[in-house]
Amino acid sequence: MIKAELIEKEEVQNYKFLDAPIDEVHVQKEKLIGAVRLGNEFKSKAYITFQTDQGPKKIETTVWTVTEKYLQIKNGILIPLTSLIDIQY
């Protein structure tokens, strides 16, 4: 498992997203759906790990929505699904 630096969710927009290394990806559709449900119904947060140009980063936040290509968090910030490494909740 990749070690990721924990950052504030407000800092996400300061990074350039890269595709996650395929052998390190641990995100399935069920995890994405679970994270959205957790955020919308229970107002709970998840840990999201993603790949950036400065290495793997992790945030704790509420997942608002998931589309075909993006995961959306607060303030309309979009994280490409291709950059996701893991979601834990």
Score class of each variant (00 low, 15 high):
residue 46 A to G: 11
residue 63 V to Y: 05
residue 65 T to N: 14
residue 45 K to Q: 12
residue 30 E to T: 12
residue 46 A to W: 07
residue 27 V to A: 07
residue 44 S to K: 15
residue 49 T to N: 09
residue 65 T to F: 13
residue 34 G to D: 14
residue 62 T to E: 10
residue 52 T to W: 02
residue 41 E to M: 11
residue 70 Y to G: 04
residue 29 K to V: 11
residue 46 A to F: 10
residue 59 I to P: 03
residue 53 D to M: 08
residue 44 S to M: 15
residue 66 V to E: 04
residue 51 Q to G: 00
residue 29 K to F: 14
residue 52 T to G: 01
residue 45 K to M: 12
residue 58 K to Y: 00
residue 46 A to L: 04
residue 62 T to N: 10
residue 44 S to F: 15
residue 44 S to D: 14
residue 48 I to Y: 08
residue 50 F to W: 03
residue 51 Q to K: 07
residue 47 Y to C: 09
residue 66 V to Q: 04
residue 46 A to Q: 09
residue 64 W to F: 12
residue 44 S to T: 09
residue 61 T to W: 00
residue 33 I to G: 00
residue 52 T to V: 03
residue 49 T to M: 13
residue 54 Q to S: 14
residue 45 K to R: 15
residue 57 K to H: 07
residue 68 E to R: 05
residue 46 A to V: 15
residue 45 K to I: 00
residue 44 S to V: 02
residue 29 K to H: 12
residue 50 F to R: 02
residue 58 K to D: 05
residue 38 L to T: 07
residue 69 K to V: 03
residue 57 K to G: 06
residue 44 S to A: 14
residue 38 L to Q: 13
residue 33 I to W: 03
residue 39 G to C: 11
residue 49 T to D: 12
residue 28 Q to C: 10
residue 56 P to T: 00
residue 67 T to Q: 05
residue 27 V to I: 15
residue 69 K to C: 02
residue 50 F to Q: 05
residue 49 T to I: 13
residue 53 D to P: 10
residue 47 Y to R: 13
residue 62 T to F: 04
residue 54 Q to N: 10
residue 36 V to M: 09
residue 31 K to C: 08
residue 43 K to S: 13
residue 71 L to I: 07
residue 49 T to R: 05
residue 70 Y to F: 13
residue 33 I to E: 09
residue 35 A to T: 07
residue 53 D to F: 02
residue 45 K to F: 08
residue 34 G to I: 01
residue 59 I to C: 05
residue 40 N to C: 08
residue 61 T to P: 01
residue 35 A to F: 09
residue 71 L to S: 02
residue 29 K to D: 14
residue 52 T to Q: 03
residue 33 I to H: 02
residue 39 G to Y: 06
residue 41 E to Q: 14
residue 57 K to R: 15
residue 70 Y to V: 07
residue 27 V to W: 10
residue 46 A to H: 05
residue 52 T to M: 03
residue 69 K to A: 07
residue 68 E to T: 08
residue 68 E to N: 09
